[in-house]
């Protein structure tokens, strides 16, 4: 078994009286795609918000490369090598596609103002390399984006927006990538295509661990190596897709939520 790169131990997150994550544990290995699924409101996004440092967990710990990282500010966690996307995509709308990816490389640069003042040649070279790399990543997910690097991110259609967000997160060669419902709002074809691209991330970034959040179980069927199912903040099942999908608790949780939705 590959090494564990990120794990949550007895993680709990409370908002006042609401327990959004209730004593949840999981481990992500190198080269693995871990699926965290559950109905809407189960607490999936909250897990990412805690891991990426936006929230400080009420109790429990998050361990990344054998360091406890809870409570660190988001930018430090990003610098350590954990990058994420958002369920409601959060792009920098008024700047270009290329600039969005270049911001994603922020963690790579050492020093900003001082370097750009006194090491202009080196900075220019670095920029050139970064642009080349950006175009490569964009091309992996969407040749359209790579061909239109100067398009305003705000002018993209939803599918392209999601892809650009993934590119931005991948730009700094993270060790862990957190994807929050990347296929939301896509039709089955687009979503299947995206899952193919996600599987291929491991070709451009060896050893990367990916956590994929989904509320739709079918989407992760082919992608996730291992699945943790949560409902109302609690873990209710774990295992391979076949194992969790045949679990009666899981079926009940999903049926329950569908009845509510109807």
């Amino acid at each position: 078994m590959a090494e564990i790169c990120l794990s949550a131990n007895n993680l709990t997150m409370k908002f006042g009286g609401l327990v959004a994550i209730d004593n949840v544990s999981w481990a992500l290995h190198q080269n693995e795609i871990l699926g965290i699924i559950g109905p809407n409101g189960a607490g999936k996004t909250t897990i990412f918000n805690v891991v990426s440092g936006l929230y400080t967990p009420t109790s429990g710990e998050i361990v990344f490369k054998s360091n406890i990282i809870n409570g660190l500010p988001p930018y430090k966690i990003a610098k350590m090598g954990i990058k994420r996307t958002f369920q409601q995509s959060r792009l920098f709308d008024n700047i270009s596609v290329l600039d969005n990816v270049l911001v994603g490389m922020a963690t790579l640069s050492k020093g900003t103002l001082v370097n750009s003042l006194f090491r202009r040649k080196r900075m220019a070279k670095e920029l050139d390399e970064n642009i080349q790399k950006s175009l490569g990543i964009l091309n992996h997910f969407s040749p359209f984006l790579a061909e239109n690097p100067y398009r305003k991110a705000g002018d993209l259609v939803p599918g392209e927006r999601r892809k650009l967000e993934i590119c931005r997160a991948l730009a700094s060669d993270p060790d862990v990538l957190l994807l929050d419902e990347p296929a939301a709002g896509m039709d089955p074809n687009e979503s299947a295509e995206l899952m193919e691209d996600i599987l291929k991330i491991r070709d451009i970034r060896k050893g990367i661990g990916i956590i994929l959040i989904e509320h739709d179980m079918a989407v992760v069927q082919k992608t996730a190596d291992y699945i943790v199912v949560i409902s109302y903040g609690k873990e209710i099942a774990r295992g391979s897709f076949a194992e969790v999908s045949s679990n009666p608790l899981v079926q009940e949780a999903y049926l329950g939520s569908e009845n509510e939705n109807a």
């Binding site: 936006l54 990003a78 920098f92 709308d93 911001v103 922020a106 700094s172």
Partner: peptide
Amino acid sequence: SKVGLYFNAVREDEIAAKCSGI
């Protein structure tokens, strides 16, 4: 410069900027 770009990132979406490592 990069600083100008990062300024823009903060303006456009502060949370996304933080999570990008700024």
